[in-house]
Design a protein around this nucleic acid. Structure first.
Lengths: 114, 114
DNA sequence: CACCCGTTATGACTTTTTTGCATAACGCCG
DNA sequence: CGGCGTTATGCAAAAAAGTCATAACGGGTG
């Protein structure tokens, strides 16, 4: 038995940013490509593309600058706004998971089962 | 733009307890009936029933004692184990959401947009 | 004792969401 | 001017969630 926790941001009731999307953006930053980013975090390109589109549409800002064709076939880079958003989200997550894990241990430990 | 957070317990990678299930059990306790509980929290009886079954199977303990037929057509009551679990889960959630909301306000407030 | 009632319990079907596959378009480069 | 590795989408397949219908149950009631 283990505890899990999750923090995400919504706009108009629709999710726009969470841990998965954070990893996606970070991987794009690392690889300069949506395709390779998706491969790294084990989701389909389709899904990654949908995530990015939805995020941008709902936030109303550009997060990923894309280039089709050209050197290396193209690629994608994060905008400054995406980087700022990543920073803020990191701050938001900071410490929360650790707190929850700690609480879980204190409350649920010391039993045979359950 | 608003923040949301969620804490849940898993067994073997499968969720067994979260806020929705907590509300369900509390509603069953209140009404003495799965049907009425489901109606109150706005999910189908089918779904409520599936939740209960999955929880019990994965936790390996009985949570809801069910009676078919009889007075009032039957009904359902929580077991002591279910009550204990509810208490622990409440402790686990306590304060976390408030913390996240507070952090969110501090980090994301004071902007035109985004 | 036969029927009524509201509940639990399920199977079957429908709708929605998610996932995956195939393919077009792009533009530098050798 | 064809090759390459991307981005970009439409469409089909699969999975999940939701809906509906109905059986079984057993105390209460007349």
């Amino acid at each position: 038995m283990q505890v899990r926790s999750k923090i995400w941001v919504e706009v108009g009731g629709e999710p726009v940013f969470g841990r998965g999307r954070r990893f996606l953006l970070e991987a794009i930053d690392k690889h300069g490509s949506i395709t390779r980013a998706a491969r790294e975090i084990n989701i389909s390109y389709r899904r990654a593309w949908s995530y990015i589109n939805a995020m941008e549409e709902r936030l109303g800002i550009g997060l990923v600058e894309r280039h089709t064709g050209g050197k290396n076939g193209g690629g994608a880079v994060l905008t400054d706004e995406a980087r700022r958003f990543l920073e803020k989200y990191a701050l938001l997550e900071e410490g929360v998971r650790e707190l929850v894990d700690e609480k879980f241990k204190n409350i649920f430990t010391g039993e045979r089962d359950v």
